[in-house]
Amino acid sequence: MINGKRVLIVIPAWNEQASVADVVREVRGELPGVGVLVVDDGSKDRTSDMARDAGATVARLPYNLGVGGAMRLGYRYGYEHDYDVVIQVDADGQHDPRYVPKLVDALDDADFVIGARFAGEGDYTVHGPRKWAMTMLSAALSRMNHAKLSDTTSGFRAANRRTIELFAFWYPVEYLGDTIEVLVRLVRNGYRLAQVPVTMRQRQAGTPSHSPVKSTVYLARAALIFALSMVRK
């Protein structure tokens, strides 16, 4: 229970055996009384075992679906187990669970809250095409939302019951759909979005899924997903 709400932490994990156990332990240590669900997305390593030994509930997908696929499963679990709040936390240790109560509090006046890196706190920087993509996205979404959203690709996010009910059935599985298209859909349908400034840490182990080489492709795909999500039903 945080702020009188039943909170579920969903951790999408794909081949994160080196860091997932620490993340689970840290979450459970900092936030006693919250549910912890690790969605193992068809990992080839011991992610499931590590997470279970650390005390998490584990849902294991039979094959890799991507972050969006894992998260819809997480929201479905939260929906079926009557949680009031579902919060996504990455398995690589970049998200500090001490911000979770702040995210939950911010849900008092919003349906969906993003833990944002560029909102003042921390010193996260990106360069080149990826940065242009992020800047344009956040400008467009902030306008549509009538409130600032400075980090549209952050994976540190909190959803209230209304949003959980949507995401349990609709959550895009495509690359970047889980970040960009989700936000566009929420804003277009009148959900209230807000952000809380956070500091993110370095990944604890393993490698990030995006390499610098991919960042131009990233820009193009981000633009495409954004354009599509503006016209999709």
């Binding site: 509930t57 584990v58 849902a59 294991r60 997908l61 039979p62 696929g69 499963l73 679990y77 079926e80």
Partner: peptide, 13 residues
């Protein structure tokens, strides 16, 4: 198949 995979994972959990 995505929905089936989810169902399977939820059931096993």
């Amino acid at each position: 198949t995505r929905t089936l995979a989810e169902d399977l994972a939820l059931l096993r959990t």
